[in-house]
Design a protein around this nucleic acid. Sequence first.
DNA 1: AAAATTTGTTAGATTCGTCTAACTTTATAC
DNA 2: GTATAAAGTTAGACGAATCTAACAAATTTT
Lengths: 220, 220
Amino acid sequence: MINSLTEENYLKALFNIANQSGEVNVAELSKTLDIKMPTVTSMMKKLAKKKLVHYESYKPLRLTEKGRKEAGLIIRKHRLTEMFLVEKMNLGWEDVHDIAEQIEHIQSPVFFEKMDEMLDYPKVDPHGSPIPDSKGKVVWKDYSKLSDCEAGDTVRLSAVIKTTSEFLKLLNGKGMYLGLKIKIKSIEPFDKSIVISYDKRNAEVLSNLVCERLLVEKIV
Amino acid sequence: MINSLTEENYLKALFNIANQSGEVNVAELSKTLDIKMPTVTSMMKKLAKKKLVHYESYKPLRLTEKGRKEAGLIIRKHRLTEMFLVEKMNLGWEDVHDIAEQIEHIQSPVFFEKMDEMLDYPKVDPHGSPIPDSKGKVVWKDYSKLSDCEAGDTVRLSAVIKTTSEFLKLLNGKGMYLGLKIKIKSIEPFDKSIVISYDKRNAEVLSNLVCERLLVEKIV
DNA sequence: AAAATTTGTTAGATTCGTCTAACTTTATAC
DNA sequence: GTATAAAGTTAGACGAATCTAACAAATTTT
């Protein structure tokens, strides 16, 4: 009943890229993992045998309940680790992903329970993503993308998605962080770039590519 | 130039079981790793190609300088991790080995540098084993085994070797810890078991099997 | 020193996770 | 609604790390 590191990576990717109905294409998974499609197909058959994935030829892939739980538990370890690295080891939010990507595969319940306890049972990771509970369940709040907001809106930055180290360094450079209150001053119709103000800054410009990766809550 | 997890485990074992002249038998390595001899032979040829091991048919194995360095760096990560788990995460010395065994393979210089810094550059791990320096070099102090001491000697417990969880729990049960000052009251000629006193305890008996795993410094 | 034992190697098979080449099915475009 | 393109599968190969069976060398015993 133990999954290999490789299998864990497939499960995690399936979990992460599932759309609302939980479906994933072979091509998409192949691209995400940078593994050729035939390899993905054969691994899906293997995971189907283990009752972790629903697999039918030429149909979209779906995690089973069991698969979703196991994936959730891996992501739980990943996000707890990220939180630990930021909160207890003073690493930057742009540095923790690659380390967590490795530590998430550690087999040791006590190790992660201890982390959880030391962090006082955090609900989100340093990027605002929710940490799955100990049953692997996770719920996202219904944030909006900053790119879907309108001029005049005042919002709170609640999460960042599709994060890369480059992207997070850009945010660092602009003095942006989770919890930040942002006022949208205007939106450029041509390229959807926006002008915002926050803290002491009065006219920062963010491209649409950036805004699509910022999740916010509207403030009334 | 990256070594696989498997290769790392061979290097580490070679390092750990090398005798004073640095030699290791195939049979010994095979037994330590619980891997059959033919597999070990073929891996040794592979490591020899990578200039990590000196290999000649029917001759004892020896790490090259390069191999010794790489092994030392893995063991450095292992022991730093053990120290971190005990000092910063409050795990018991009997619980940390299996976790460190996994974390030692994490590839992230910054992660281990941070640990080192947080621990204030420790020289030994929770079992008294020296932590190799950042070049992989390690030196053992010249401790004696408690089993080689004589009645009347007063010693300080400085390290524990060949530790298993069971063994460390036995020490916990007897209230023994590193730094403990021990007086040897008598030695039973028949089985070499010894009677010692320390702290508030006045006549604890330790079997020879235990004493062979306790390294001490004589106090003058 | 011959025999027996232990140690080490060779040869060949197996499993896992990957690939490429060729083919099939499904979706898209005209 | 056929042609083209995209997505997915099948078949076969390969490297890594493992194994077993059989053989060879070195060591130990007698």
